[in-house]
Every structure is written in C-alpha cells, then in structure tokens.
Amino acid sequence: MLEQILTLLPQVIFDGLILGFVYAMVALGYTMVYGVLELINFAHSEIFMIGAVVGVEVFRYLAPQVENGLLLLLLALVLGGAVAGITAILVERFAYRPLRKRGTTNRLVPLITAIGVSFILQDLVRLIEGLWHNEFFLRMRTVEDLEGSVELFEGAIFAQNKSFILMGVSILMLVGLTYLVNRTKLGVAIRAVAQDLSTASLMGIDPDRIISRTFLIGGSLGGVAGVLFALQYTTITPYVGFLPGLKAFTAAVLGGIGNIPGAMVGGLVLGQLENFFGTYLPILTNGNFGTEYKDVVAFLILILILLLRPQGLLGQVVKEKV
C-alpha cells in the first residue's frame, strides 16, 4: 500500500496545485470583501459560477469564429471576469448598500441578505440558460489548441496542457493583485478602508467607491477563476459554485480572513489537503470510505482552524472592542 501511495504522490500534488489555484483566486474575493465590510459574502460563490457560465457561452459561440485557441481563452477570461465583476458591483449596489445606509447594528441582516442574493443568482442564471438553450447542464466546448497533455518525470505526472494555462493565468492574476494592493493608490485606499472605514473617509477617501471597486476586483478574480474552472473540469451548472465557494471561504479562513497573502496560501494548502484525502481515503480504508468524504474533510479543517487558530495561518489576533 505504501508503494501505491508513493507512486501516486506526484500526481496528487500536481492535481492539488490546480485545485489550490482555483481556491486561492476565489478566496481572495471573500477575503477582500471581508476586509472592507466584515461581511461573509455568500454570493461570491455565485460570482464564480457566473464566470464559469460566461466562459462556457463564449466557447460555445466564438469557437467557430476564433481560430486561435489561446485568443479564444483570452476573450473568455476577459468577458468572464468583466461580467462577474459587474455582477458583483450590482449586488453590492442593490443589496448590501441599502442595508449599510440604513445602518442596522444587527449582524445577521447582511448575512441573511447575502444568502438570499446567492440563491437569487443561482436561479437567475438557470432561468437565463433555460430561456436561451432550454438546458442548464452546460458542457465546455473542447478546442483543439488547448487540448493535449504531457507526461512529466518519466510518467509520474500526467498533466493536461490546460492545467499549465490555469496555473500560469492564476499566478499572473495573483502577482497582479499583489502589485495593485501594495503599490497603487487604489490599493492604498482599499487597505485604508479595510483598516478603518470612518477614518479613511476623513482622509478624503470615498468609502462607497472603494467598496464598489473592491467588489469589482474580487468579483473579476472570481470570474476568471470560474472560466479556468470550466476549462479544467468542463461540466458546469448554476449550482456548481456552492461547494468551491464554501471551500474557498474555508481557504480564506485558513489563511486568516482579511489577509490577502493568507488567502493565497490558504487556497493552495486546502487544495493539497483536499486532493490528498480525496485520493488516499479510499486506499487507506480499503474503499470503505470513498472520495465523497473529501468535502467532509474540508469542513473539519475549517472547524479545527476556527477552534485552534481562529486568526488563521497568517492573520493577526484582533481584540474585540467594547
């Protein structure tokens, strides 16, 4: 059994890395919104799903016109990111901002709203797809240029070309975001609002604008992640965002919620853990407990982290003020 585990290990790590990059990008959306609003934006998993659906539609309609597979993917990424980002802005504008303006102190109110928004978006996408194609189980169209695979390390890893694209794009996005947050004026403003909203507004920052931008950035990252997810895993439904969303949130908590590098690290770690358990649990238990339990493992990790290290891997302890 040990030998089997060892031979599988490189592949497990590689697949976990792919999953980890998807989680990392989605987790950033959770963490950034939490940073500025202290709100768990449940609807973010649907923003991710919308990106995936837009990706599928772009491939469906533009694949015959656009010869070059990479150009097609670029179009899908841009469109997916844009639609997802705009949806995120709209959600903030029409669901969360009215609550903020009324200024309820009850913490449940925005949370319940977020859940409601998440449900609305799921069925809205289903409705649109239903009217458009009369089906909502979508399959990503395969494009010659993007297919193909290589074997690395004498066959120890079987890797699809798509996986490298996914990793490359993710790394670019993550580096870009790090630059944006740390080096630009907008990034400074976002960090200022996250640190203290009312003081930031005294320094000439318009918090509403910054919050809106934060949703745009987080949303388009989620959308891009969605397109890549669709490319990699090919089957998409309006309900596909729920589990990755929940796990990406877990990743955000794992890294320390509100902490941007933390979300990236958390995503990568969670991707590894999940894939590790998903592959090895059936082997270790002689098939008695199958891959289905990998989701259970993810939640148990979430609970353990929250209990043992609620500030996450990279977060700082924040004292609750009276």
């Binding site: 669901a95 009215p98 609550l99 109110v109 925005p110 319940i112 709203t113 859940i115 409601g116 928004v117 998440s118 449900f119 609305i120 978006l121 799921q122 069925d123 809205l124 289903r126 409705l127 797809e129 239903g130 009217l131 009369n134 089906e135 909502f136």
Partner: peptide
C-alpha cells in the same frame, strides 16, 4: 412556447432568495 426548463415550480430558490433579500432591505 416557453422552454420546458423554465418551469416556475423549479425556481423556489429564486422566490426564497427574493423573500430573504426584500425582507432584509
């Protein structure tokens, strides 16, 4: 003429979501 997938009985999430959001706002 409306596609069969657009069947109101399958859209309870939409309705419940709307109820939650509208009530909260």
């Amino acid at each position: 003429q409306i596609p069969s997938q657009v069947d109101p009985a399958k859209y309870e999430r939409l309705v419940f979501g709307l109820i939650l959001v509208l009530m909260m706002i």
